[in-house]
Design a protein around this nucleic acid. Sequence first.
DNA 1: CCGGTTTTCGACCTACAATCGAAAACGTGG
DNA 2: CCACGTTTTCGATTGTAGGTCGAAAACCGG
Lengths: 230, 230
Amino acid sequence: MLAAVFTVRPVDAPADRPEGHPALHVLLWQRAQAPDADRWALPGGPVLTDEDVDSSTRRQLAEKVDLTRVAHLEQTGVFSAPERVPGARVVASGFLGLVPQDPGRPAPRLPADTAWHPVDHLPATAFDHGGIVEQARQRLRGKLSYTNIGFALAPAEFTMAELSRIYTASLGHEVDVTNLYRILHRRRMLEPTGRTAPPGPSGGRPAAMYRFAVQRYRVTDPFAAFRPPI
Amino acid sequence: MLAAVFTVRPVDAPADRPEGHPALHVLLWQRAQAPDADRWALPGGPVLTDEDVDSSTRRQLAEKVDLTRVAHLEQTGVFSAPERVPGARVVASGFLGLVPQDPGRPAPRLPADTAWHPVDHLPATAFDHGGIVEQARQRLRGKLSYTNIGFALAPAEFTMAELSRIYTASLGHEVDVTNLYRILHRRRMLEPTGRTAPPGPSGGRPAAMYRFAVQRYRVTDPFAAFRPPI
DNA sequence: CCGGTTTTCGACCTACAATCGAAAACGTGG
DNA sequence: CCACGTTTTCGATTGTAGGTCGAAAACCGG
């Protein structure tokens, strides 16, 4: 019961970068005790006998983040190598969680031992947690293309340029704004809010703002071979 | 640790049908003892402390089928509802297994309490095993379209008409032979063996025989939105 | 040799996505 | 207030994959 919770946020501006650009981050907490003391671990813990793994994950996550911010949560797989943790054998099921941006509310305060880390520059991770993060990331990458889980990473209202930056950070490569708009629009995943964002300091046409039409997980008809005949 | 093992084989010819047509079957064994006595269950059992869930599944499957026939095995999800089985809480991870047709070898003998059942006409199943079968079936349906797992259901050598019947039985709808050939061919998943199958009793052009080019699980580049730029 | 049957394969159409470029809608500086 | 740079928007074009159809190929039996 270990959850890789992702969000897209600006990386802490390093010295050589003028401004932090948005990147995919994962929530980790630093272990204080052996084994693997000082290494960074995923939130999680044992499942109680009167709960299923999904509600158990929610319960454990509540200790680390504001649960109302976790907009999506799903299983990714079971990790069961006998030596994955020292001592008694522990079977863990991995989860993918997503937290949207929320420019409206103040950033939630995290416990002292907990922090967001850019997935491309992870610190030393405990046990096999690095592999669990990687599996969850792959799942996210795949589902961005044929589901609407973008809603779980984007703020309630956004411009297409902002959404493109979110997709770029999550997928790890450039995402063309024109293409992004046309695809999401044809799938009826976007709704215009009517409002426009103020143009930047260097001018330019003000961008229209959109929201996701449905805020619950949906798979769009995947483009696949061997479709059933109509 | 419960495995839904599928194979495509002719359904036992009923009275009203002249010949059994190929259908997707799942391996079940009949429980002798309470709870859920006489109901049909998936093969499986507890994981030992020195094995991971994958090797545990293989070990347990060996008691029911010839393991060398299981050409593909993968996790599908975790089933953990507190009341899924009476008594102490048991968490099970579901598996999908595939057994190919093999006209060469004689049909393997099954234990007395074990039998193949057509997934469209399952008997009364134990606990939540019906849901596990359904989840595995969905996984199979999806992956047939963007991976090569067809190799794990088809015999070593086959004609396109035979392969189409296997896909039809697994997907639950007609699969056009022309389309099937062109798609698998473009993905370089097929190799001609040079041999031809003898034509049927009513004549017709003899069919060319093919084999799958790679006999290990591969995902073909899924056709998806937001591809990385070359 | 001729008609029936099954397989093979080319031709056409549609749907989706990637790319490009022009037009629209804003700022700023002369 | 008007030219210019900037950013967004959106139409046009191209490429590729899949679905459908039908003609040709290759066998049978009479």
